[in-house]
Simulated scan of single mutants.
Amino acid sequence: MALKGPCPALLLLLLVLLPACLALGRRETRHEKFHRQHVDFPKTSAPDARRYCNLLMPRRNLTTDACKPTNTFIHAGPAEVDDVCHAGGTLRTENYYDSKVPFELTICRLAGGAQRPPCNYRGRTSTQQIRVLTLPHPLHAAGTVA
């Protein structure tokens, strides 16, 4: 016997929305935050580095309350970046790993003016080795680009 009335529609709506609500309520891990802030692969298309930075910095929530002074975006897959802390890198000091190979990067720097949004960035592209700081975490390492 089929259910009648609004209950099947509400049940279907609940089944569709529940996973989305649970995902929104979950806190971002340090590892996820590192990827959000520093990994852009494939590289987002923009006419030049300045427009790239002015597009990506707010898109990645790096200008929500204040303008982040500087940020580096790595244009490699997340697994390649994570591998710097393993076989793809060399331990330099207690928690710093240097990549064995260079990565394509875009470096965004605040271009003077206000420290509050809207923010204006200048950008520069580069290919160089990266240094990643790993932070102690029970499940996995996350870091910042040095």
Results as ranks from 00 to 15, higher is better:
Pro47Met: 05
Gln115Phe: 06
Thr134Lys: 09
Arg59Asp: 10
Arg50Ala: 14
Leu110Tyr: 02
Ala2Arg: 15
Ala141His: 13
Glu80Gln: 13
Arg124Glu: 14
Ala146Glu: 13
Cys108Asp: 06
Val39Glu: 01
His35Met: 13
Leu110Met: 06
Val81Cys: 06
Leu12Phe: 08
Phe41Gln: 07
Asp48Tyr: 05
His75Ser: 03
Ser99His: 02
Gly77Ile: 03
Gln37Asp: 14
His86Phe: 14
Pro102Gly: 08
Arg131Trp: 02
Pro69Val: 01
Thr106His: 04
Pro58Lys: 08
Val132Lys: 11
Leu14Gly: 12
Glu104Pro: 11
Pro42Glu: 10
Pro8Cys: 01
Tyr96Ile: 15
Arg124Asn: 08
Ile130His: 00
Arg60His: 10
Gln128Leu: 05
Phe41Glu: 08
Lys33Asp: 09
Ala2Gln: 12
Arg116Leu: 11
Pro42Cys: 08
Leu91Gln: 11
Val101Ala: 12
Pro118His: 06
Leu91Phe: 09
Thr64Val: 10
Lys4Trp: 08
Val84Arg: 05
Pro69Lys: 05
Ser45Glu: 07
Lys33Val: 07
Arg27Ile: 01
Gln115Ala: 13
Asp48Lys: 09
Lys68Leu: 03
Leu17Phe: 05
Cys67Val: 03
Leu62Gly: 00
Phe103Lys: 00
Gln115Thr: 13
Tyr96Ser: 15
Gln128Trp: 01
Ala111Leu: 02
Thr44Arg: 01
Asn61Gln: 07
Ser126Pro: 03
Asp83Ile: 02
Leu91Arg: 14
Ala111Ile: 01
Pro136His: 05
Thr144Gln: 07
Val145Ile: 13
Gly25Lys: 12
Tyr52Lys: 02
Asn71Leu: 11
Thr127Tyr: 03
Arg109Asn: 12
Asn61Glu: 12
Val39Asp: 12
Leu18Gly: 04
